[in-house]
């Protein structure tokens, strides 16, 4: 007999036991490991996807920030350029203004220096001229300059025409002791010229005219008589005028 029924039953039992054994030791552990690995891989893939999306988001954010930064930088550069240009123009204008002010100040200083120089020259020239004239007159005629000026002044009084002389005499007569006729000279006149002038004035007005002598340094060498709006004068200022003109021309040339 090919079939042994005890063996059939035993083999069926053996097979069921084997089913249980393999379920216990093979299928369950293996499937559990596979499931765990699949879950782990799925989690890793999900993490990677999340990381990828996060990286993409950060990349986009970075790109946007970069573009914004580039735009801001360009705007800042442009603004800085404009500000630098404006500041340069302002500094240039300021420097130009300062240069102009310095130039004007220098011009003023030069003008002032020239004026001072001019005054000094005039003063020195006057002193020199008078010194030379005084010395020359003293050496040649043994007559003081003051006396000579008084002579010239007296001669001028005498050379006045009739109408002028009468108007002048009227002015002289209106003088009194309280308001004497003023005789100004560049320096104090000695007694002799004063007496000569007193005499000439008395002669011209046919009256005793009170005179008051006064030294006036700005008169530049000469004598001036003022009475009731009338004035008779002589000085060497006209002689000095030509000298002054030539000196001014020289100083202007030096300034230019």
């Amino acid at each position: 007999m090919l079939i042994d029924w005890f063996t059939v039953g035993a083999q069926a039992g053996n097979f069921l036991i084997l089913v249980w054994l393999l379920k216990r030791f093979l299928y369950k552990p293996i499937l559990a490991a596979v499931d765990t690995r699949e879950k782990r891989i799925a989690a890793a893939i999900a993490d990677a996807e999340a990381g990828k999306s996060l990286a993409q988001k950060e990349r986009d954010e970075f790109r946007n920030k970069n573009e914004a930064f580039a735009a801001e930088r360009a705007a800042l550069f442009a603004r800085a350029g404009e500000e630098a240009k404006a500041e340069g123009a302002r500094l240039l204008a300021e420097a130009r203004g300062a240069a102009d002010a310095l130039s004007a100040k220098r011009g003023e200083t030069l003008k002032r220096d020239a004026a001072n120089l001019h005054q000094a020259i005039v003063r020195r020239t006057r002193q020199e001229v008078f010194a030379v004239a005084r010395k020359a007159l003293a050496d040649l005629a043994a007559v003081g300059l003051e006396e000579r000026m008084a002579e010239v002044f007296i001669r001028r009084l005498g050379e006045m025409d009739g109408a002028s002389k009468s108007v002048f005499a009227e002015g002289l007569r209106s003088a009194s002791v309280a308001t004497p006729v003023l005789v100004r000279s560049a320096f104090d006149l000695p007694a002799a010229p004063r007496a000569a002038i007193q005499q000439a004035v008395n002669g011209a007005s046919a009256a005793e005219i009170p005179l008051r002598f006064e030294a006036a340094p700005d008169l530049v060498g000469g004598i001036e008589l003022t009475a009731n709006g009338q004035k008779v004068a002589w000085s060497i200022s006209e002689y000095l005028a030509s000298l002054e003109k030539s000196i001014v021309e020289v100083s202007d040339g030096a300034v230019a």
Binding site: T7, N14, L18, L22, I30, R37
Partner: peptide, 26 residues
């Protein structure tokens, strides 16, 4: 038959146990 079957069962069960003893989920 039974003896060879038991031997096979032993091999299959013990082999499975040995392999699945240190399963890795990595």
């Amino acid at each position: 038959t039974l003896v060879y079957t038991w031997a096979l069962m032993l091999v299959l069960a013990v082999g499975s146990k040995l392999v699945t003893r240190k399963l890795s989920a990595h």
